[in-house]
Design a binder for these strands. Structure first.
Lengths: 215, 215
DNA sequence: GTTTGATTCAAACGATTGTTAGAGCTGGCG
DNA sequence: CGCCAGCTCTAACAATCGTTTGAATCAAAC
């Protein structure tokens, strides 16, 4: 009921447009037009396009990573592998509940976040590199430690790789779930994030439990 | 020893720049400067920036997908799960042998390909959508069939999802392997594609072998 | 009612974008 | 040689980019 806040309106529009087209391909004019605000508002409220991108990412990543750590702390000990994997994956996919509005682009916030996050993290404009590694270093360390506790016998390097694989599977899937619809000729029609996360948890848990690579 | 062909020179420069910065963020002036050719050469030889992007992708994807299908045909029957996974992953990572020059950006062609492919497929400018789904529909169908033969008991939808996860893990890993170096504080320093593929094959094979999701 | 600070607005800035036109160059063939 | 096709070059095109300016508007405080 609060009057639509300009800053949030811009963030919403930026999030959906970055998700659809990426950072570089989205112009401020297109963005402010969709948001229904003046062109100069972005520079006034955020200082520039790059700072806007940082704000878009931070608004979503912060609560998700907080929730991840909260779940990690709440795990039974010794941790079950699937529970650790779930603690990592579910918060990212359930952020849909936070802002329960479904936006103009027809996608749930979770899908939009993962797409924008995947895009910007992959486009990796230089200005975003340090920001991202800083956001994930501590989180990664804690998860790797917990994963090794839940799956004894895998070394640190393997654990890092497998977490990387899991992130990749998650990001790519939510970015391109619609592609799967087309390619599979209708075998996969699920857009429900809850269903996706179950598939993903099963896949990643088994992957983490795989025997160590012998080379 | 052949004189450097302008068309190939452009393709090489475009591949490395698209890999580094993405499609939209790379300008033709930057591209032609690195290639050491005239600005107008891109439009002369390819017709425009979008057609250039298509050519960059096609040059690498075509031989890889051919090799994938060749390996698929050569599999023993009934197929072992790991062999199917390997038939899908290795060709993409071993295309380094094709053009054995290591280019100016210091990355092996395999890494560059995966990065440019991941970028463009994720940026997904509208002009590339149909092109990509067409390239992968037949390949996906054949692999899903073979995977279900090697891992009986998983349904078609699950097989599609897991293949999607595998693609995501592969793409994300090769795009961001350098990030892993930073985040893991040196636990992961491997840049050798051969080592990565072993980790990845182990992870994905286990994921495919996971029990069906019960919901 | 006036003032003050915050926000929005139209308009323009210089820079850069993809693309194109047309002249200039080059090498092989008659 | 003269010619022509293939390619490269300079120069410019219109369009769009992110950003900035300075005036207009608004709401609350005095």
């Amino acid at each position: 009921m609060a009057p639509p806040d300009t800053k949030d309106t811009i963030l919403d529009a930026a999030e959906s447009l970055f998700a659809e087209q990426g950072f570089a391909a989205t112009s401020l004019r297109q963005l402010t037009t969709r948001a229904g605000v003046n062109l100069a508002a972005v520079n006034y409220h955020f200082g520039g396009k790059e700072e806007l991108a940082r704000a878009v990412l931070l608004r979503r990543i912060q609560p998700i990573n907080d929730e991840r750590l909260r779940r990690l702390d709440a795990l039974e000990r010794p941790a079950r592998l699937e529970a650790v994997v779930r603690a990592f994956l579910e918060p990212a996919l359930q952020c849909a509940d936070e802002g329960d509005r479904t936006c103009a682009d027809g996608h749930a916030p979770a899908t939009r976040l993962c797409r924008v996050f995947g895009r910007i993290s992959i486009e990796q404009p230089p200005f975003i590199r340090g920001f991202l590694t800083e956001q994930f270093r501590e989180l990664g360390r804690r998860f790797v430690a917990m994963l090794r506790e839940a799956a004894p016998g895998i070394d640190a390097e393997t654990a890092w790789w497998r977490m990387h694989f899991t992130i990749g599977a998650m990001a790519h899937t939510l970015q391109n779930a619609h592609l799967l619809d087309e390619v599979s000729d209708g075998a996969c029609t699920a857009r429900d994030p809850a269903a996706i996360v179950e598939h993903l948890v099963a896949f990643a848990t088994a992957g983490f439990a795989a025997p160590e690579v012998t080379r």
